[in-house]
Design a binder for these strands. Structure first.
Lengths: 155, 155
DNA sequence: ATTGTCCTGACCATCTTTGACCTTAGCTGA
DNA sequence: TCAGCTAAGGTCAAAGATGGTCAGGACAAT
């Protein structure tokens, strides 16, 4: 009797991921308008889903073409752990990192088997405690530093 | 026979616990507004009940999502209630804990095989980053909270 | 009377959805 | 040819839908 809450964006995300799994090519091509119509929403809703769910941080790449015969192409990418870590160290470790990006990063490291499930939960728990800090800038900075220190230990 | 005071909060608590018992999934999802409406109170009352009755110490975990189709998810978790560690964590989370005590605790947890070597290093790394914080009181408090959150996750 | 618990309401933060307006690519007909 | 039409996709800001926080007053227990 437990109802799982789902919304348009989540449904569309699931749908696209299912398509991706089924595809042999490693990517899928879709029409923005058609997809929007299938889910009875405005086309820009599709952009929202792509921007929030199919980001590089989560391991996806989106290409597109406008005009007649335009398309949206979604690709699953599997970066080696070193690249994932390198991206983090290059742009987030010192300048701070938002909580959403941090979560995505942890998820990817887990998916890549670089860290265990317990370790991923441990890291998330430590970062989650930072909500105690009011100053957002300090929070982001600390989050970056903590992640860096923790990942260094694991290398 | 102790008579349970019947007030809004207690009623809501009982109601939620009944739902939890009935659920096969081990958790329930609710809408804050709906629940408030069912009990004819303001939505923030729900938060009050969750904060006072469905705490980690009492064996519950609450997750939530805001925005359209948001939800509150209450989960029953099974901790050894009379666990002395749990009390210690609570104390640490409430009043903070110094870095030396924290280190000793981590060491003991590792020695008793409660956590792995990597995990112990991970925890120390995250706590070490707190040096970035100037305010000692905030630092101790954060250290306590992080420790608690991290170890709770591992139980 | 004092203290702790309960409730409320105003204001805040976050996530989602929509719609008006913009840009780009391909096609077509004078 | 190539200007203009048509068919895509892109951006952005505002509105909508939830949940979160906090201070203060009401009320109950002692």
């Amino acid at each position: 009797m437990v109802k799982i809450m789902s919304n348009l964006s989540n449904n569309m995300e699931e749908y696209l991921k299912k398509l991706l799994k089924l595809s042999t090519a490693g990517f899928i091509d879709i029409r923005r308008k058609e997809l929007a119509s299938k889910f009875s929403c405005v086309p820009s809703q599709v952009n929202y889903v792509l921007e929030t769910r199919f980001t590089l941080e989560r391991g996806y790449m989106v290409e597109s073409k406008r005009g007649g015969r335009g398309f949206l192409r979604i690709r699953r990418i599997h970066l080696p752990v070193e690249n994932i870590l390198a991206m983090f160290f290059q742009e987030a470790a010192d300048n701070g990192i938002g909580s959403k990006k941090a979560k995505d990063l942890i998820l990817r490291l887990y998916e890549s088997k670089f860290i265990s499930f317990r370790e991923s939960r441990l890291i998330e728990a430590s970062l989650g405690s930072l909500q105690l800090i009011k100053d957002e800038s300090l929070r982001d900075k600390l989050r970056g530093k903590m992640l860096k220190e923790m990942l260094m230990v694991l290398v």
